[in-house]
Amino acid sequence: MRPQENLCHVVQPILRWGMVLSLLLMFTGMLMGLVIGVEDTNVVPLRDIPSGMLDLDPPAFLTAGLVLLIATPLARVLGALCVFLGEKDHKFVLISLTVLLMVVAAVLLGAA
């Protein structure tokens, strides 16, 4: 049996900080929406997030939180991949790469 400690030490902080930061951003966006009023409800494109946040635009904060949340599953696979690379666990390097490839393929197929 192989211990999972190394994996947990890398993956757990990714999950926790992903959750905490996205919660903070979404909560801020919600509060600002409460004060300013809920008008535009659509998500903001990735490149407009920084300028939107500087303009104190609530959807920009909400979108930043959502993007961060959506990124956590990707980050956990990448984190695991780094651990496997460090442990020279070739089988699982291959397995994590396959998962990442499948995700990319699915996104490309869906976007087409």
Binding site: T41, N42, P59, L62, G65, L66, V67
Partner: peptide
Amino acid sequence: YGHGFLNAYLCA
């Protein structure tokens, strides 16, 4: 998200 189909307030 890429298609802009997410409602920011609802999702949050």
